[in-house]
Amino acid sequence: MREIDHNAALIVIDVQKGFEHPYWGRRGNPAAEENIGALIRAWRAAGRPIVLVRHDSAQPGSPLLPGTPGNEFKDVVAEAMGGAEADLFVSKTVNSAFYGTPDLAGWLRGHGVGQIVIAGIQTNMCNETTARMGGNLGFDVLYPIDAMHTFDAVGPDGEVVTAEELTRATAASLHHGRFATVLRTSDLT
Rank of each mutant, 00 (worst) to 15 (best):
Leu142Asp: 02
Glu159Gln: 14
Pro144Ala: 00
Leu137Asp: 05
Asn71Trp: 13
Phe139Ile: 01
Pro60Phe: 08
Gly158Pro: 12
Thr185Pro: 08
His21Cys: 07
Met125Asp: 10
Ile36Tyr: 08
Thr170Tyr: 14
Gly155Glu: 07
Ile11Lys: 07
Leu183Trp: 08
Gly177Ser: 05
Arg184Glu: 10
Val182Trp: 05
Trp24Phe: 13
Leu137Ala: 03
Glu79Lys: 14
Ala119Val: 08
Tyr99Thr: 08
Thr101Val: 09
Ala8Tyr: 13
Thr123Ala: 05
Ser96Trp: 09
Asp152Gln: 01
Phe151Thr: 01
Pro63Thr: 00
Trp43Arg: 10
Val154Lys: 15
Val76Trp: 14
Ile36Leu: 03
Ser173Cys: 14
Ser91Arg: 15
Asp75Arg: 12
Val182Gly: 00
Val182Glu: 01
Asn95Gln: 14
Gly110Val: 02
Phe98Val: 03
Leu137Arg: 01
Gly177Leu: 05
Asn71Arg: 06
Pro156Gln: 06
Ile116Gly: 00
Pro69Ile: 00
Thr68Ile: 01
Asn95Gly: 13
Thr170Gln: 10
Leu137Lys: 08
Ala58Gln: 11
Ile145Trp: 09
Arg168His: 14
Arg27Glu: 10
Ile4Tyr: 07
Val15Pro: 15
Asp5Ser: 15
Ala46Ile: 10
Arg26Glu: 11
Ala31Trp: 09
Val15Tyr: 10
Leu65Ile: 12
Phe73Arg: 09
Arg132Ala: 00
Phe179Ala: 02
His149Asp: 06
Thr130Lys: 11
Asn35Phe: 10
Ala180Lys: 03
Gly70Leu: 02
Val53Met: 11
His111Ile: 02
Gly135Gln: 05
Met133Gly: 04
Ser173Asp: 15
Ala131Trp: 07
Ser57Asp: 07
Thr150Lys: 05
Glu79Pro: 09
Ala153Cys: 07
Asn35Asp: 07
Ala42Tyr: 11
Ala180Leu: 01
Asn127Leu: 15
Val94Asn: 11
Trp43Asp: 08
Gly106Val: 02
Val160Gly: 06
Asp187Thr: 03
Arg168Met: 13
Tyr99Trp: 14
Val53Ile: 11
Glu33Leu: 13
Ala180Met: 02
Ala38Tyr: 09
Trp107Phe: 07
Ala119Asp: 04
Val76Ile: 15
Thr170Ala: 13
Arg178Ile: 04
